[in-house]
């Protein structure tokens, strides 16, 4: 198990009901962690619409998560 800090934005923040949390997980990748959190909280966006960032940088959804990482799941963007 590792402990990570997850930050939520936009639709994910609303569906989770909070902006960040610290949690212990057996997930080894952002994709696995999103799957776990989606099942727990009922996020509507499927994994293939989400990008991941770790420690303020984009990463592949298959990247390895490490203890203490700050993870952000990025819903489809809509600036401008």
């Amino acid at each position: 198990m590792i402990t990570v800090n997850v930050q939520y934005f936009a639709i994910l923040r609303e569906q989770r009901g909070l902006a960040q949390e610290r949690l212990a997980t057996a997930a080894g990748t952002p994709e696995a962690l999103y799957g776990e959190l989606r099942a727990r909280h009922g996020f509507t966006l499927p994994a293939d619409r989400i990008r991941a960032a770790v420690n303020d940088e984009f990463v592949a959804s298959s990247a390895s998560l490490r203890d203490g990482d700050r993870v952000v799941f990025i819903p489809p963007v809509a600036g401008g």
Partner: peptide
């Protein structure tokens, strides 16, 4: 402006006259 709209992690939520709201590009 085109790249910023496509790539930068910014989101917008529309508030409609009907009272409904929606996060753009996030409908499923």
């Amino acid at each position: 402006i085109d790249e910023a709209k496509a790539r930068v992690p910014i989101w917008k939520k529309e508030h409609y006259a009907s009272g409904a709201t929606a996060w753009i590009n996030c409908a499923v």
